Every structure is written in C-alpha cells, then in structure tokens.
Amino acid sequence: MNKNDTVNILGIPLYRYSISTFIKNIDNKSKENKCISATGAHGLVTSVRDNRFREILLSFNTNLPDGMPGVWVGRLKGAKEMKRCYGPDFFEETMRASANSNLTHYLCGGNEGVADSLKEVCENKFGANIVGTFCPPFLQVKDYDYEEIAEQINQSNADIVWIGLSSPKQEAFASNLSKFTSVSYICCVGAAFDFHIGNVKQAPNWIQKIGMEWFFRLLMEPKRLWKRYIEIVPLFIYYNFAELIKGNFFKD
C-alpha cells in the first residue's frame, strides 16, 4: 500500500479512503498473498501493548479502518476523505463486486458449519463464486498445520481467502498462512461470518455512525466482550491523547 493512501494512527497505517475505492484496485492477476485486516480500536490498542502483533499489522499490505474512532482520529490528522471500512461491509461489497468477474473466494473461520452456511449466503444472495470452506479447530495459533491448510486452499485455486476469527488471532493466523499459500489476498474480517449468516445481530446504522457499536455488541454478548471493551475504549482515548501531549499526534 502506498504511504500516501494511509494515515498513521497509534503507529499503524490505516487506509484513508472508502471501501468502494479500495475494491476498485482488487484483482487476481498476481499471486502475492497480500494480507488485509479490518482493524478497529481493539487491534490498534493491542498493537501498542503487543510488539509481535504490531509487527504483523505493519507487515500487512493494508489495514482498513474498521471502526469510527479510528476514522475520527484519521480525519483529525488530515484524512478528511477517510471513511469507515467495516469488515462485514468490506466482505459483502467485495462479494457483490466479484459476482460478474472470475474472482474466486475461500472461507476460513467460524464455528462448525458457519463457513458452509456463509457459502450459501454468498452464492445465493451476493452471486459470488466460493470454491472452498474450512472451519479451523480451536487451537493456539502456533499449533495449526498451515502447510496442510494451505494445500487445500491452493488446490481450490482461490484468489481471495477470508479469515473469520477473532482479533488478534486472525491476523497471526493469516500471517502464518501466507507463507504457504499462492493466493492474491488474505483478508481478516472478524465477526463478518457470524453477522452475515445471522448468528450475531449487527448494530443499527445510526449506532454505527456515532461510534457506539462497541456498546451495542457489549449488550448482545456481555460475558464475552465486557473485559475487552472496559479496557479498549479508555486505552484508545488515552494512547491518542498521550501522543497529542508528546507532540507525536500529527507525525507520520
């Protein structure tokens, strides 16, 4: 990704335009294993606290601004045209845009049966060409047999692999998988799988636009998410404010 197409937020370059603008540049002409992550406040804060995760995000071709807080900070830093590139929307728009092309997709993630259910949605609702699915067993990131998973993907002749796991696991998974696959893109989209098959309810658009989706999701899944958000929201504000005080806020 060209540096001019990004804005630095907590040390991570985030894409400064819209989903539609980004999708226009997607093609399957080369097998480069370009890793893409839809990265919100959770990922940005984790990158400050975890150097290994930070290195992974910095190695990715593109980090899309998944949440409104990142977009607001980006606009404050001068990226006035920056728009939210929400993971589920990026997934859907790419699927729809590829309906009349030769782009092929592989779905990797979710609990048992989720990827297969999503395959039906993508084919029947979006008109996309899904050439394979895989539900990773619940293991530590280091314990997966990436060569075996990559062999299945390579045999499917997929152009884009979609990873639907939680962050930061999905980014580490994608990074490891990219060492063995021959695809064009590996895209991390978090809960997009569950959203699109109806397993998890999405926040209404107006709640998303005011940056309160985290609170809506907390109400939907309090046991799983309370600890994450009680830390992430204050830390995101604190880290950006600290950059402002130190005079680093507007530095690339």
Rank of each mutant, 00 (worst) to 15 (best):
65 P>V: 08
77 K>S: 09
73 V>N: 01
60 F>C: 01
77 K>P: 09
83 K>D: 14
83 K>A: 08
70 G>D: 14
75 R>K: 14
56 I>C: 00
60 F>I: 00
58 L>A: 01
62 T>C: 14
73 V>P: 02
71 V>E: 10
75 R>L: 03
84 R>V: 15
65 P>M: 02
69 P>W: 08
82 M>P: 12
60 F>Y: 11
71 V>K: 04
63 N>G: 07
57 L>C: 04
56 I>G: 00
79 A>E: 10
69 P>N: 04
84 R>P: 14
56 I>M: 00
77 K>R: 15
63 N>P: 11
80 K>H: 11
71 V>G: 05
63 N>V: 09
78 G>W: 04
64 L>A: 13
55 E>F: 01
79 A>C: 09
67 G>M: 03
59 S>D: 06
55 E>R: 11
77 K>G: 12
76 L>P: 01
71 V>C: 10
64 L>P: 13
55 E>T: 05
66 D>P: 13
69 P>D: 05
79 A>Y: 07
83 K>T: 13
57 L>H: 08
65 P>G: 06
81 E>Y: 13
78 G>Q: 06
67 G>R: 02
83 K>R: 15
66 D>L: 09
79 A>N: 09
78 G>R: 03
55 E>W: 01
72 W>H: 07
80 K>W: 04
58 L>R: 02
70 G>N: 14
68 M>Q: 13
81 E>C: 10
80 K>M: 03
62 T>N: 09
74 G>L: 03
65 P>E: 04
81 E>N: 15
64 L>K: 11
54 R>G: 01
65 P>D: 05
65 P>N: 07
64 L>W: 12
83 K>L: 09
72 W>L: 12
69 P>C: 04
64 L>Q: 12
56 I>D: 00
58 L>W: 01
71 V>M: 06
60 F>R: 00
68 M>T: 11
71 V>Q: 06
57 L>K: 02
57 L>E: 04
68 M>K: 12
58 L>H: 01
72 W>N: 04
84 R>A: 12
76 L>W: 07
57 L>M: 13
70 G>A: 15
68 M>S: 00
54 R>L: 01
64 L>C: 12
66 D>N: 14
78 G>D: 09
73 V>Y: 01
66 D>M: 07
59 S>V: 00
78 G>P: 07
83 K>P: 05
68 M>E: 12
84 R>H: 13
80 K>F: 13
56 I>R: 00
80 K>V: 06
55 E>Q: 14
83 K>E: 15
71 V>R: 06
67 G>A: 11
77 K>F: 09
82 M>V: 08
58 L>S: 00
67 G>E: 03
58 L>V: 02
60 F>N: 02
59 S>E: 01
61 N>D: 15
65 P>K: 03
61 N>K: 14
61 N>M: 10
79 A>H: 12
74 G>D: 10
59 S>I: 00
82 M>A: 06
54 R>T: 06
70 G>C: 15
83 K>N: 13
77 K>N: 07
81 E>T: 15
67 G>V: 06
58 L>E: 03
65 P>T: 09
72 W>R: 11
81 E>L: 14
76 L>D: 08
75 R>Y: 05
56 I>N: 00
74 G>T: 05
67 G>F: 06
67 G>C: 04
73 V>C: 02
